[in-house]
């Protein structure tokens, strides 16, 4: 049976990297006494799959992983058990049994929503909010994206599904598919680049609000819908 877990990450633990968060949950699952399934072979490992890695320094309230369990009481009980073994800064928000043909967390990810706040060291132009709107109103945003293999020219506009100003922050919904993932800081860097604003070190505080999959009808819905 497959179970999907949703969790948040905030405060000091934002400095714990993705791999270490995976190890953290491998241990947490043991502490919680969850009857997780293991792979076969001489060095068996827990069958677990994480949705989309979160960069060091970012916070989130929309992280997910799937695990295969051998036995299971109910969603609420598992939520409680996991909740009891968490550290400050990681909360388990939801547990959901997956339907039979449901794709795994990593493969399902289609998009992610972020909130971007600015560091005090970044001197924002007075009209930055209007500029952001016109930035998004362009028909094409040609950019060069660094990939594992080298560089690629893409139209960034196609990967930004939503971009708007919310108070002092920027909300964006962007492509987070495994091959086409767009980092929120890349969008912001492109924007400020076009604006001609020099960026200091670590200009943004980034918070992931939600991770989405695409339903058959094309709608974006949270990984636990």
């Amino acid at each position: 049976m497959k179970v999907r877990v949703k969790f948040s990450k905030y405060g000091p633990v934002k400095f714990v990297g993705h791999l270490d968060i995976m190890h953290y949950f491998q241990k947490a699952v043991r502490r919680a006494g969850i009857d997780i399934a293991y792979s076969e072979g001489f060095s068996p490992h827990q069958i677990m799959s994480f949705a989309s890695p979160l960069s060091v320094g970012h916070t989130s309230e929309g992280e997910y992983f799937d695990m295969e369990v051998r036995s299971f009481t109910d969603e609420e009980d598992m939520l409680k058990k996991l909740g009891q073994v968490m550290v400050e800064g990681i909360d388990v928000l939801q547990v959901r049994i997956l339907d039979k043909g449901e794709g795994n967390a990593m493969a399902s990810v289609a998009a992610a929503a972020y909130l971007v706040a600015f560091s005090d060291k970044l001197s924002l132009p007075a009209n930055w909010d209007k500029e952001l709107i016109s930035f998004y109103q362009q028909t094409h945003i040609e950019v060069v994206k660094k990939t594992k293999k080298g560089q690629k020219e893409i139209d960034l506009k196609e990967s930004i599904y939503q971009l708007e100003v919310r108070g002092d922050t920027v909300y964006m919904l962007v492509d987070a598919g495994s091959g086409s993932n767009i980092k929120p800081e890349f969008v912001m860097e492109t924007f400020f680049g076009q604006l001609g604003v020099m960026l200091p070190e670590y200009p943004f505080r980034i918070h992931r609000i939600e991770t989405y999959k695409r339903r058959e009808d094309g709608q974006l819905v949270p990984l636990i819908a």
Partner: peptide, 19 residues
Amino acid sequence: SDEILMKVEKPARYIGGEV
């Protein structure tokens, strides 16, 4: 500060709060 922790290798060495 966040700036320092982003700059150094393995910032989780300095945050405490472990299990």
